[in-house]
Design a protein around this nucleic acid. Sequence first.
DNA 1: GCTGATGATTTAAA
DNA 2: TTTAAATCATCAGC
Length: 430
Amino acid sequence: MDEQTRLMHSHSGVGMAGHPGLPQHMQEGTGGSDGDGRKQDIGDILQQIMTITDQSLDEAQARKHALNCHRMKPALFNVLCEIKEKTVLSIRGAQEEEPPDPQLMRLDNMLLAEGVAGPEKGGGSAAAAAAAAASGGGSGPENSTEHSDYRTKLTQIRQIYHTELEKYEQACNEFTTHVMNLLREQSRTRPISPKEIERMVNIIHRKFSSIQMQLKQSTCEAVMILRSRFLDARRKRRNFNKQATEILNEYFYSHLSNPYPSEEAKEELGKKCAITVAQVSNWFGNKRIRYKKNIGKFQEEANMYAARTAVNATNASSHGSQANSPSTPNSAGSAGSFNMSNSGDLFMSVQSLNGDSYQGAQVGANVQSQVDTLRHVISQTGGYSEGLTANQMYSPQGINANGGWQDAPTPSSVTSPTEGPGSVHSDTSN
DNA sequence: GCTGATGATTTAAA
DNA sequence: TTTAAATCATCAGC
């Protein structure tokens, strides 16, 4: 800067013709040859620019006016703009070429999907539909009330979002206009090209869009909270109806040695219970772990279902028809039909009643007597105890020493478990 | 309101 | 991918 000033002072003596406030000798011509004269002109203008702050306001205004009206001004302006373009702006320009922010895109997509952004869709009908689906398609008054509540709250979020967005946009436009006017004004004395103004506008927009992103993020969070509050399946948990539970329990206890229904069996159970396959899987997962954890607690239940199964088996046998139970993957019941009438698992459920057999579970004498009764019933049906001895019937099966079902790991492709002396085919029976 | 039951979710392992 | 196990969140009976 000092060097520049010093150099510029060395050119003093060259002035602007016909302008007030300039040395008289400067106004009399360009002086010397054309080339030298132009150089001196430029040097003089630069010097005046550099010293403009040292002058009084009136003097500065007069010089400013003189500069604006100078014949060399447009050329100088262009040159400075060009230099600026090649240096600062070229660097800045490279930085500005950014791909669209993926996070912003995600937020936009989510807000669109939720019906918060974009055109009004009846207060988030898509989300309401999702709510209906999540609640198992229930269409009771309770559901509709909750959905309208959900919609109301979503509409509130939408309104707040749009209000804030409008505010941001308004502020952005105001600020942009202000900056543009300022830059345009300054472009009369500084080398500011329209392109640079445009870039500045883009920078302002980016700054504001980062604020917008925060708004979108907050809105998304609010929607997520709302969704979890209203749509979270856990919050919407409803116990299965009694009949469904009975069907599931019936299957579980009749396949106690291998309570891993195949996909087909799950589908069939799901159909019968009016629940999804996933729910069937959940139910069996829960049941297995809870049964294993506390066999004693489930003894009575197991006993009851074993008895029921036995009775069904008896009826089935005497009527020559099949009981209504889904087949296990390794049972040889007719495909698609519910066949548990002759399942060897019946024995397993009976065995499970024998507390000595499983992890120290206690079984009372009454249970033992029921087991005996069941054995009797089973033996009467003919075909269930074929080839089985009393020892086989009471040998520990199903849950092994580690607390797992023997053939649990391959539920969908179960083959016969290892059959040692005194063992019973886990699911056999055919 | 407390407590057990229960359906769903998450995490780790195979 | 399926399962066990742990955990969460709600339901339901008292």
